[in-house]
Design a protein around this nucleic acid. Sequence first.
DNA 1: TTGTAGGCGTTATCAG
DNA 2: CTGATAACGCCTACAA
Lengths: 329, 329
Amino acid sequence: MNIYDIADEAGVSISTVSRVLNNRSHVKPETRKKVEDILTKHNYTPSAIARGLVLKNMNTIGIITIDIRVPHYAATAYVLERELYKLGYNSILCNTGGNVESGADYIQMLNKKGVSGIILIGSVFQNKYIETSLIQKAYDLPFIVINSELRADNTYSVMLNHDQAVALCINHLKDRGYKELLFVQDAESFSGNRKAESFLRHMKKNGSVDPVNSVFKTIRGVEGGKAVIEEILASGTNFDAIIFGSDVTAVGGIQRLKEKKLRIPKDVAVIGWNNSEYSTAFSPALTTVDNQDEMLASISVKMLENLLSDVPVSKQIQVDSSLIFRETT
Amino acid sequence: MNIYDIADEAGVSISTVSRVLNNRSHVKPETRKKVEDILTKHNYTPSAIARGLVLKNMNTIGIITIDIRVPHYAATAYVLERELYKLGYNSILCNTGGNVESGADYIQMLNKKGVSGIILIGSVFQNKYIETSLIQKAYDLPFIVINSELRADNTYSVMLNHDQAVALCINHLKDRGYKELLFVQDAESFSGNRKAESFLRHMKKNGSVDPVNSVFKTIRGVEGGKAVIEEILASGTNFDAIIFGSDVTAVGGIQRLKEKKLRIPKDVAVIGWNNSEYSTAFSPALTTVDNQDEMLASISVKMLENLLSDVPVSKQIQVDSSLIFRETT
DNA sequence: TTGTAGGCGTTATCAG
DNA sequence: CTGATAACGCCTACAA
């Protein structure tokens, strides 16, 4: 059933059918009614593909992430998809699995499928490869990058103000009387690096004795958290507060700290990051940084919407964070 | 840049270009080479939309779920997307947010965008509305339903063998010497109901004294777990083992049990469900049911692939589960 | 082996 | 207010 069939049955031309379909003016009420009846009678829906061909636009956008199973990414993707849908767009989900080439592939596919734009969640691309090959493959598509950045035209970044967030943590801990702060970086991503750098910068500024040795690295997760505590203890570093790059890692860290008979927050204060389910799932409940996933996602959609209607948009937006106080500080 | 431009530059017709594009035979090697050079020179990729119009197929499939933020669903979606991509399909992600009408909307959109099939993760639709309105909107599309079912033609189900999984739990607990088993249902979904029904059936078969009062309901999550323990305790029911509908809820339950000075697994055995991150994040590590998310997803993709190539496919597939033994039993 | 022409289902531009 | 007709970019008989 296509527009011709409808036109025939209504005894009008396809132009008229098209007009009522897109409810344009310049069509007599009676005619409109007649066509609409037939439309609903057949439960007719126009082919988005054919429309896409002429409009060069399928009302879809691509969402690329490393792995949708990461709760933090899923939270972002959820809001993106829902907001986009409200605006009439469908979302094509792409998981690169951490493979950059696979990401470039996706971009090419998305491009030929006529997406209107692409939103990247996190550090999907981290090397220079991207800035040559990849952007060529879709140089006229707008890219929104959440919590990372791409050095190319028509790419826009929306990110947490990591620097401000870290400052929040440090000030809170200082206020509470903690003096020897540590940061645990549990990802080599853009955000991970930013947090660590900010931490170092603030510590130096505060005249901390040995800021350089106050950052420890581990892998994200409960085990990583346990391991890094061992490492910190073994290093002989003095500390009375630890900021973790994410809640899961913090949870692992807390477990090991407890096993070592260190009381929280009496002996050691702990701050997590993400305000995830983990932060309230166990006792003591984690003081944590609100990652603003929903906000970042909403802003990204708004930005894309503006971009697509030629409304000027700033190249980068940073969103301030807030601390959620619970039992570990 | 389109197929005409390429043809012009190569001094051939568009049919020839089309042939090399789809690497068909019947084209002289030299001609092919010549065209290919120009193709790569311009980094040309054919428009999937135009191709879709004539082929009536965009090589995309729709994935509908209630909420991608649910880890269990995200795990499924991840595998679905990756496997589908290997087969050349892109995935359009849809979150209904629990709204059935919104789900029907999605189906209509997917249909007019020319998806080749739709995969539902979980109990996206649970009422009769679906079976009339919804199926009409896309009656010729194949539907694969994971861990739920739809009463309509061309819908196929892939699900965990809940009955076998529950039997596994019960037998394991009995073997360990536990006698008074309880089941906590934490979702009114298809799976949730199936687990509870299976539990009841097995308990009756085993001649349990009061099977009916051995199922308690709560809401999914840490708080739900805590609450249901209070309820169980208040009810005066005797018990020495509890099977929870999911790990998160079990984790909450364990916390409250511990607070009540009940030792695990000495006084009470606990089994979770999903083998999620929660099951190993805390001590004691949860004995849990493997939900087989990856397997269900893989099978779903395989099924869809067969369906799309007219290979006969069974209407329903059930996958046996296994128990992962840890410290709570 | 290659080229021509028609069709896929819309939208858009002109006339009328 | 309405109707031809030409795109949109590709695939595919059918011809050559």
